[in-house]
Design a protein around this nucleic acid. Structure first.
Lengths: 338, 338
DNA sequence: TGGAATTGATAAACCGGTATAGCTCCCGAA
DNA sequence: TTCGGGAGCTATACCGGTTTATCAATTCCA
């Protein structure tokens, strides 16, 4: 018999459907002997629950969603997402919950997806990335009453659950390291200004500057693309008093920046030190290999999955879990200034 | 009222549940006037079908799956998958079918996922990538009777539906281009030997060699990683009669190879020409920018989605759709030999 | 004009689970 | 001896759709 149902098992075991359901879900209502017998029969017939049937009855679908609103062009190179995804999956697979992934162009489309998912009951909860300051998604999700966890941004005022690392401390670590090497002119090529983590990193640089005696510490925002990263670098290196070190908010921009430096005949790390605020193979493929901030992105994703499952189980308590601080991996692209 | 059901609509319209179902699915059984009225009411109440309920009744879940069996480490840098995914989604979204994505470690795990998906009725079909020669997945999927489409490998003997590009012609184009530039010693750094496309590319090089008067045209297999790409390059460039051109099966390996050349003081393209068999931002970030084979990966994914939907609708006819041939984008990394 | 075919709709079964009311037995306490 | 109560199980409603059998009203055609 193909794809046995709970009714088939009931017949074989000589009990009712209800008893089988109790036994298979480990809840009281049947004796240990009967439970044992039912489980064995289910095993023999290699029974597996029909996800739709279960979803209909129990009104949960054992599936969570994740929408990434970035143009696919910039997405591919970011190892960040691949690691994050793997981590999320590993966190979910323990409970055999499945993941729906969607890549869309912008936040409006993303919100549309949440609406659709909710009305069609396709997911039990969602994972949010790239939180902006006054992010419209937060309100929307609360209105939809869809459990959610934010990755990489503190939920703030008890809004949504979150899993976050301290971007501020990380940025301070980088700047302090560069200052200790002797750098006094440090530039910061930041990401999209409305991302919360971008804001926090910019503030960290600004706050640290006077304490470390930096002469100049501008933060310049970009769209995270290699093109803008390159353009800003070109501008910075053309100034009369150019920076002796540049911190990039992503590995892709750092690589683009390195390219510009080479193009302009600025030696790295001799005349310019480069640090990437994110690690990946990319930074190691370069010559010189880039000094970068290493975060355990896989674990990040795993924890996000855990927190989401807890939030789905109990939507009233909002969890804000902090992950271990990232560490700076020093490679060949940083040295004392000339 | 939150989340109206088909019964609510029926009450409001003063008809039966069945009539509403007919109207909403555009099938005969109701008059045009009634249909109109029901549709308007459904619209007003912003009704959306409950996916689980529909799945249970119609025994299709409007969801397809895709499993990628590669270590996450190498995945992230490959823009290939991001584009492919976006394409697949765009092909599915037209029918508002959702996509389940899973990244696993190996093929055994992948097959396990297919079994689970089938027994739990979680997907209507799947998309396969990285087909190997005698791929165990093909047999398994046929046994499970799970509709599937293979990306990038001809299904062969009427096994599974497929969407493919001609890797042979593409490789020939590259080799002919290099030969025309005057190269006679061309090396090929290939991918995993058991992938079908790797085999086809290797054969293409071997077949073309005598015709183009190549002195030497070895194909060396790797695991697609930057590390092996670099190692092989190092070996090739250390030989007494080293190649004047190298073709890499992936952009990541090409970048790694370029790094090795620079490290060893071999100028590109002066002493060595480099071609990547896959295009992405990566190749453009480099200095010199890499000549690469550009494929419309997005469209590839879109077509795969289309073919899969057709296969699900009618599992008896096996579609083998050929996509447009890729084109060679010449950049700065290729030139006549010294 | 009468019987057959067609149209438009309804009621009810069904998909495969979960949840719950209720029934039977058995045990222990009053 | 009776009654309360819990353990163990059954029967059944239910989730929100789809599908089929059925039926009344109309149209068609001989």
């Amino acid at each position: 018999m193909a794809r046995p149902t709970i009714a088939d098992i009931a017949t074989r075991a000589g009990v009712s459907k209800g008893a089988v359901s109790f036994a298979l879900n480990g809840r009281p209502g049947v004796s240990d002997a009967t439970r044992e017998r039912i489980l064995k029969i289910a095993e023999q017939m290699s029974w597996r629950p029909h996800s739709a049937a279960r979803a209909l009855g129990a009104s949960r679908v054992d599936s969570v969603g994740m929408v990434i609103a970035r143009p696919a062009r910039t997405l591919g190179v970011e190892p960040f997402f691949a690691h994050l995804l793997s981590g999320v999956q590993s966190g979910l697979s323990a409970e055999s919950i499945s993941l729906q992934l969607l890549i869309v162009e912008d936040t409006a489309a993303e919100i549309e997806v949440y609406r659709r998912w909710t009305s069609e009951h396709r997911v039990d909860g969602v994972i949010l990335v790239d939180l902006t300051v006054k992010d419209p998604r937060v309100e929307e999700l609360k209105a939809l009453e869809l459990p959610a966890v934010v990755i990489g941004g503190r939920g703030g005022k008890g809004a949504l659950a979150s899993v976050w690392a301290d971007d501020r401390d990380a940025m301070l670590a980088i700047v302090e390291y560069l200052a200790a090497l002797g750098h006094r002119r440090i530039a910061h090529v930041a990401g999209t200004p409305n991302f919360q983590h971008t804001q926090r990193r910019i503030r960290a640089v600004r706050d640290a500057a006077p304490r470390l005696g930096l002469l100049d510490a501008p933060s310049l925002t970009t769209d995270f693309s290699d093109a803008e990263g390159a353009a800003i670098t070109r501008k910075l290196l053309s100034q009369s008093s150019r920076p002796t070190a540049i911190v990039y908010d992503s590995d892709v921009m750092a690589v683009a920046g390195l390219g510009v430096a080479m193009e302009m005949g600025v030696s790295v790390p001799g005349e310019l030190s480069i640090v990437a605020f994110d690690d990946s193979i990319l930074t190691q493929l370069m010559h010189p290999a880039l000094t970068a901030l290493s975060r355990d992105t896989f674990d990040f994703g795993r924890q996000a999955a855990e927190v989401l499952l807890e939030t789905i189980a109990d939507p009233t308590t909002v969890i804000n879990r902090r992950t271990p601080d990232p560490v700076l991996t020093v490679r060949e692209s940083t040295a004392p200034p000339a």
